[in-house]
Structure formats: C-alpha cells, structure tokens
Computed example of a mutant assay.
Amino acid sequence: MDKPCRLFLLGAEVDVITPADVMAFVGRKVAAKERAIVANHNLHSLYLFQRRADMRAFYDKADLIEIDSTPMIAWAKLMGHKVSRTHRCTYLDFREDFWALAQKNGWRVYHVGGEAAHNAASKAAILARYPRVHLDLHTGFFDINGPANALLLADLRDKKPDVLLVGMGMPRQETWILNNLDRLPDCVILPVGAAFDYEAGVMYTPPRWTGRLGIEWLVRFFHEPKRLFERYFIEPWWLIPQALRDVWRLKRTA
C-alpha cells in the first residue's frame, strides 16, 4: 500500500483505507519492530475530538486513522471524495483476517480491556478459531493512574507484544495510550473499544450485512437504546459547524 489518501472531514483527518490496507500496515510495522498507532474515527470520536484536548493530542500521534463510520463514508462521498463502504474499517470487519495473520506469523498479541470475568471467555472464543495464537489479557477495569497501571506497564515490558489491543471505550482507551505511550513497548497499538465483549458473547454483535447496508447503527440502537441514544441522536448535532466548513471548502474548490 502506498501512502493513503488523507482527508479532512468533519473537523478531523482520516485515511482512505480498506481493512486489507490496515492488515498490511500492521504486518509491515510488526516485521520492522516499529511502534505505530492505528486509530479510528466515528461520529462519537469526532464529537469528543472537538471537545477534548487530550483526544486531539492522541490523534496527532496516530500513524493511520481508519474511518469506522458509515455516515462518515456517506458524507465524504457527498463532498466529492472517492470513498466507498469498502473503506470502512472496524474490528468486527477485519478480526478474522487479523487473527489468521497473528497465528500464521506468530505475533504476540496483548489485549487490555474488558471485565476480568469475561476475559477467559474472550480468549477461549479466539483460540477455538485460531488455536496457535499467542494471546495475553489484562482487564480494563483498573485505576489507570495508580499502582495497577505500573504493574501493567511492567508486564507489557516483560511480554513484549507485537500488537497491543486496547479496549476500554472512548475516550478512556485513547487517554491511556496517550499518557503511557513513551512507556509502551515497540508494537502496533490499536484502540478497539468493546471488541472482546463481542468475542465473549456478552455484547450483541450485529450481522456484518447491516454495516454494508448502512443500518448497523440502527440495529445497535434497538439493542441498547439507553446507552446509545445520546451518542446517535444528540452528539451528531454538535458536528454541524464542521459539516458547514466542509461544504464551504467544497464550494471554494469547485
């Protein structure tokens, strides 16, 4: 993959990449033993990006920024950019390719996130599909500013993972990566939200065809209306100024 096309969209930068591009990038960085951050943007992260300096600082550190949002894809197309749903990247879309590569190449994977009670089920689900995967787990429920964090960092230095998955939800996972970046081993770091809750079966996983049709958000909302109402129906209104800037920019270049 050549250097991806980077867009300025709804107030932030994103890369026009496919899940296959992401896996190729991860493979190159692991082979080179280089540290890299693969971040992602959706409407929720864009809302947080506008309101939190630490989120802006985190994305400044990112080497690759996925588009994890069908509405963002639709808006980019409306603004004349050459994008399609093939450029949507999310853990649920590339997880089988990721674990297949991890097993084939012997990657050491470390996941920080999820409840301790669910981690065994998450690992068992992955190993049932990819039994030779090297996977270490640490709960995401700990004081990120206390002694438990120092112990986690020591374990990471000892285990030396090739890939670090951080699934503590936005913005906690991004803040943790940003605050500890200089103390993390040289590995590829991906914030993955509730990825391992899906693996454990404790969170509903929408069929992948819902994402292709652009209705995954609606299916998620019907399953978790209380948690997702504000995220889906209130936060996007805060992006109207950024959307208007995109329209103004389009008119200037027309």
Rank of each mutant, 00 (worst) to 15 (best):
P147E: 13
E235S: 04
L152R: 04
L135H: 00
V22I: 13
L178F: 02
Y91C: 14
F142H: 01
T205E: 14
H44P: 05
H134F: 10
T18I: 11
L153I: 02
I37S: 08
G169H: 02
H111D: 12
P241L: 05
T90H: 10
V16Q: 12
L7S: 05
W107I: 05
G140C: 00
M170L: 09
R183W: 09
P131S: 15
Y47H: 04
D162C: 07
F98V: 10
C187D: 09
Q103T: 08
R51L: 13
F141A: 05
E13V: 05
T86A: 13
N145I: 08
K61C: 15
L64M: 09
E96F: 10
V26R: 10
Y198D: 03
K29T: 15
L127S: 09
Q242S: 10
M23Y: 09
W238Q: 06
N179I: 04
V247H: 01
G11F: 01
D93W: 02
L78K: 09
N40L: 12
G27P: 11
V188Q: 07
E96G: 08
F98M: 11
A194P: 00
G140N: 00
L9V: 09
F233L: 11
T210I: 08
A124P: 01
V16P: 02
L218H: 08
I240M: 05
A57D: 15
P19Q: 05
P191K: 11
P207S: 07
L190Y: 03
V112C: 13
R56C: 12
K123I: 08
N119C: 11
G193H: 03
D186N: 08
P131C: 14
M203H: 04
K123W: 04
N119M: 12
R95V: 15
L64K: 00
W217H: 07
N105A: 11
F233N: 10
L152P: 00
V83N: 10
L228W: 09
G193P: 03
E13Y: 01
C187F: 01
L135W: 05
E96Y: 05
P147K: 11
P241N: 06
G11R: 01
R183G: 07
R52V: 03
